[in-house]
Amino acid sequence: MTDAKRPGRLSTLAQSTIGAKIVMAVTGVILVGFLVVHMLGNLQIYLGPDTMNHYAQTLKGTPALLWGVRAVLLVSLVLHVLAALRLKKINNEARPQAYAVPRRYRVTTPAARFMLLSGLVVLAFIVYHLLHFTIGATNPADFNLHEVLDVATQTWVRNDNEQLLAKLPPEMVRHDVYSMFVRGFTNPLIAGTYLVAQLLLAMHLSHAVASMLHTLGLSKGLDARQRNITIGRAIAAVVVLGNISFPIAVQAGLVHL
């Protein structure tokens, strides 16, 4: 083989199946990391409106960090989905004629076999979730809620008078995320949608985490592999139990206005 045709450059990495798997794994680490932080941050809903709204205000008060993280997440998500679709196409084409008799699998799980399905449902959910709670397009009446700083008492008070909000300096107005959160989950249909999406996320993560650790070469040996499968399921359980506690807590009246 001549040197000019020698593989090993970044372009061959990107084109190879293993390269696509590495893209899946690296973007997966970023996305799972975000999921953990996102869930932990939202746990502050249990500490009351002031803590939650202060948290939201802090995030929005550091736009460089906020948009930096959003950009990384968006790029990761796009690459993750594109690599998944590419791998799915390669894998479908690798067996043009199916087995006449259904195969009897020994160790694979439904989570592993339906990764694309659970992934696409979660993707659709992410779009809805952004429209719902980040952009406020689906339920604007529950989204456009604000608090105004009462200078005399130094406390934040709900006030949705748009003329007043427009006149006040930005540091005296903050988004009432707590009320948005509670009103958002009061609708049982929306709460139910979140629950279903989170169950599919749990399914996705239960295979995803062990899978990415393996792809990145961190599962040498049977013990390490078993440990990574357990770690993956634990992360899936913690993230999703935390997340589903929110609509359940609102529906049960534990978190209220």
Partner: peptide, 21 residues
């Protein structure tokens, strides 16, 4: 490893998704 993976892909085999079958 580079040439074997390149050939493996060229033959039209699929990619591992860690089913362990």
């Amino acid at each position: 490893v580079l040439r074997m993976v390149e050939q493996m892909d060229r033959e039209g085999f699929g990619a591992c998704t860690n089913h362990r079958e």
